[in-house]
């Protein structure tokens, strides 16, 4: 399974590297509509990616905490404290991406072109 992840990661990096010159072709004639389109695509995509990874990390944390509580119910309060704390710290990263996406959406692009 690990190998599949690794090859997928390398493949995606290669795709990004080789498609960059294609995107840079019409760099000179960039206008407001394409910039707005790309900002929406990138903001939504980044938020989706962050939500995916954050949900995976949270699910791992919750499953481990459930394991710990079922093995030793006496430590439930300590484990719950650490669980909620860690969940919020993971969630924070997704929230950062949400803020960046909101800024990308609502910035007045017309001012800066």
């Amino acid at each position: 399974m690990r190998k599949v992840y690794k090859s997928f990661f390398i493949l995606s990096i290669l795709v990004f590297i080789f498609t960059t010159p294609l995107l840079a072709e019409n760099e000179g004639k960039i206008d407001k509509t394409t910039l707005f389109k790309w900002s929406i695509i990138i903001g939504g995509g980044a938020l989706g990616l962050a939500a995916c990874v954050g949900a995976y990390a949270q699910s791992r944390a919750i499953s481990k905490a459930c394991d710990g509580i079922s093995r030793n119910p006496g430590a439930a309060s300590h484990i719950r404290f650490a669980l909620i704390f860690g969940l919020v710290l993971i969630e924070t990263l997704v929230i950062y991406v949400l803020l960046v996406a909101i800024i990308i959406f609502f910035v007045k692009w017309g001012k800066y072109i």
Binding site: V88, E91, T92, I95, Y96, L98, L99
Partner: peptide, 13 residues
């Protein structure tokens, strides 16, 4: 920075 942005982002979101 992280304290303020966490609180703001959660409530605003």
């Amino acid at each position: 920075l992280s304290l303020s942005l966490r609180l703001f982002g959660n409530i605003f979101g």
